[in-house]
Design a protein around this nucleic acid. Structure first.
Lengths: 102, 102
DNA sequence: TTGACATATTGACGACTATCGATATAATAG
DNA sequence: CTATTATATCGATAGTCGTCAATATGTCAA
């Protein structure tokens, strides 16, 4: 996964707010919209979910007429590992075992 | 450090190319411009260095009429640790010891 | 002080993107 | 089949951002 694509997916307040909501739970689009409490409306949330999905940062599951989303923690961890491997080689071995990440 | 600011600093091809050059070495602005091999010119590099500096991702040192930059690997590692702590709690303990990062 | 070099800043322009309202698509209930 | 609910897509708009040419600032040499 390209580190620039990863960074771009994270480079937005609303998207990170959505990611926080999706951490460890499956939520429908409406749930997310409600959780953002009027900050943005449904089409905007769908737009961000699409971007996150393209970056592989969320998983999707269809349930009835809903689409349930959740955060892909493993993918996120791998991308962070790649960042450290690329830009912080002095810390790479110390903090993140390569063989576990790649 | 705000994860959104961190992500925005990384969310550009040219900026990541500059970061790669600055990994483990001190380079002047002209060195970086040369290293990018005509891709962008000097004002653009200065612009990106300013952004990276504001994000705390590079350190600066004055030497004569030059300004030498280098990548702050520790800062980058800390930010990645914060991302994992925030968005991948299931992997946090496993991959990155908190007390070493924060 | 003057000239040359290194870097930063400014202003303009184009590309991208976050957001919205409106609408289309999909799936269920009656 | 029709109505309703859930989500995605479209078109438009405003704001952000990367880039450049031109210029300003700062530093050293002669």
């Amino acid at each position: 996964m390209d580190p620039v694509t990863f960074a771009k997916a994270l480079a937005d307040d609303t998207r990170q707010a959505i990611m926080k909501q999706l951490c460890c739970v499956w939520l429908s689009v409406s749930d997310i919209v409600d959780g953002l409490d009027g900050r943005v409306n449904q089409p905007t949330v769908s737009h961000h979910l699409k971007k996150l999905e393209e970056a592989g940062l969320v998983d999707v599951r269809k349930e009835g007429r809903q689409r349930l989303y959740t955060l892909n923690q493993e993918r996120l961890t791998m991308c962070c590992g790649l960042l450290i491997e690329t830009f912080a080689p002095d810390y790479h071995g110390a903090y993140i075992p390569v063989e576990e990440i790649e």
